[in-house]
Simulated scan of single mutants.
Amino acid sequence: MVVLTGGSSGIGRAAARAFAARGDKLVLAARGLTDLQKVAADCGGDVVVVPTDVSVRTQVDDLARVALDGFGRIDVWADTAAVMAYGRFEDLPPYVFDKVIATDLLGPANVARAALRVFRAQGHGTLILCSSLVGHVTAPSMSAYATAKWGLRALARTLRQETRDAPDIHVCQLVPGSVDTPIYTSAANYAGVVGRPPPPVDSAERLGAAVVRLADRPRRKLSVGAANRIVEFGFYGLPPVYDALVGPLMYRLGLSRRPAPADTGNVFASTPRSDGGPARNGRTAVGAAAAGALALGAAAALALRRGLRVR
Rank of each mutant, 00 (worst) to 15 (best):
A227S: 11
S223I: 13
R13W: 06
A262C: 11
G192Q: 01
R306F: 09
V310C: 05
L222P: 04
N189Q: 07
P239K: 14
G225H: 05
P200D: 01
A301M: 10
A14R: 10
P248F: 12
A144G: 07
A244E: 06
G277Q: 11
T284K: 07
R196G: 08
C172W: 00
A291S: 07
K25N: 04
A301P: 00
Q161T: 14
V100W: 04
A40I: 13
S131E: 00
R306C: 11
Q37W: 03
N189H: 06
D42F: 05
H124P: 00
I230L: 12
V27G: 02
P176I: 04
P248M: 13
A301G: 08
L294E: 02
S270Q: 12
R252M: 13
V224E: 01
G72C: 05
A227K: 05
K25G: 13
V60K: 12
I11E: 01
R305M: 11
A285F: 00
S132W: 06
R164W: 05
R164C: 06
A187N: 08
A156R: 08
P278R: 15
Y184R: 07
G307Q: 12
R31P: 04
A115F: 02
A260I: 05
R88Y: 09
L63H: 14
D75S: 03
P259D: 06
A215G: 02
T52M: 12
N228E: 04
R113H: 15
G87D: 07
V241E: 03
A293W: 11
L133S: 06
L222G: 07
V193S: 06
V54K: 09
C130P: 00
R311I: 13
G6K: 09
P199R: 10
R305Q: 10
G237M: 04
A139Q: 09
A288M: 10
M1S: 14
V49P: 03
D180M: 10
N281Q: 11
A18T: 15
W150V: 15
A148W: 13
V137R: 09
A260K: 11
S270W: 14
G195S: 09
K149V: 14
